[in-house]
Computed example of a mutant assay.
Amino acid sequence: MQIFTSLLLLAHPASQDASPDPDWDCANPVQQQEMNWCAANEFVLADAELNRQWARTSAAMRMRDDAWGDDVSPDWDARPGWFDSLLEAQRAWLTFRDAHCRIDGYAARGGSLEPLLVSTCQTALTKTRTQELRDLEDWDR
């Protein structure tokens, strides 16, 4: 999964280390361009945390698959394992997030506010998904 979001980050303007304008302050953004950059940067940070949690959760799912082992009889349970199900869900979630947030942006379609709306939506959904992944990792503890 990290590959999917890493490709997005490479193309994302906020993946740069420093703001385009040294006077910009994300604690108190003033101009629309500054707000857009700060919101995009917030998404980059949320996405990085999602990727770290993905690594932990996917490792936990693989361990569950290993623990389940050869006891699975295809005659009674041919469903995909924990990791395969998680991967399928994550791919679907990424598609959902991007389409849903694109719709959020349409409230200002073509305007300078659109990137802020999209990034804010992506950040919110990504933080929620990170918690969901954390809960999946911890559910049997």
Rank of each mutant, 00 (worst) to 15 (best):
D98P: 06
A67P: 00
N51C: 12
P22R: 05
E49G: 12
Q53K: 13
A99F: 05
L7E: 10
R56A: 15
T5W: 12
W54H: 03
H100L: 03
A92P: 07
V72M: 13
N28H: 12
W68E: 06
A18M: 05
D104Q: 15
F96C: 01
R102C: 04
Q32D: 08
S119P: 01
N51T: 12
L10E: 03
T130L: 03
E49Y: 07
W82M: 12
V118S: 01
D66S: 10
E49W: 07
S19T: 13
D47Q: 11
F96E: 13
G69E: 02
L113W: 09
L50V: 08
R102I: 03
A48N: 13
D104F: 01
K127A: 05
R97L: 15
L125A: 04
R129P: 15
L9H: 14
T126Y: 03
D66E: 04
D84E: 13
L125R: 00
R79W: 02
R52Q: 14
W37T: 04
T5D: 08
L9K: 15
R62I: 03
K127Q: 15
A99Y: 01
Q53W: 04
R62M: 05
L8W: 10
L116Y: 01
W76D: 06
L94T: 02
T126M: 01
I103Q: 06
Y106R: 09
R52D: 15
A78S: 12
F43H: 10
I103V: 14
S112F: 11
W24N: 13
S85A: 11
N41C: 08
D104N: 12
D84S: 11
A48T: 15
A27N: 03
L45N: 11
L117E: 00
A92T: 15
D25I: 04
Q33G: 11
L113E: 07
L45Y: 07
A107I: 06
P115W: 02
D47T: 06
N28F: 00
D25E: 04
Y106T: 14
M35P: 01
D66A: 14
D77N: 14
S119G: 03
K127F: 04
V30D: 07
P80D: 08
W93A: 09
A89M: 05
W82C: 08
A124I: 06
Q32G: 07
P29R: 10
V118N: 02
F96R: 12
N51M: 15
W68V: 10
A18V: 10
A55R: 14
R79Y: 03
A27D: 06
D25T: 04
E88Y: 05
L116N: 01
R91Y: 00
S85P: 00
H100N: 07
C26R: 04
G111P: 03
T123S: 08
A89T: 10
A40V: 02
P115S: 02
T57P: 07
E49F: 08
T5V: 12
D104G: 08
M61Y: 02
V44E: 05
R91W: 01
N51G: 13
V72I: 14
A67Q: 04
L94N: 01
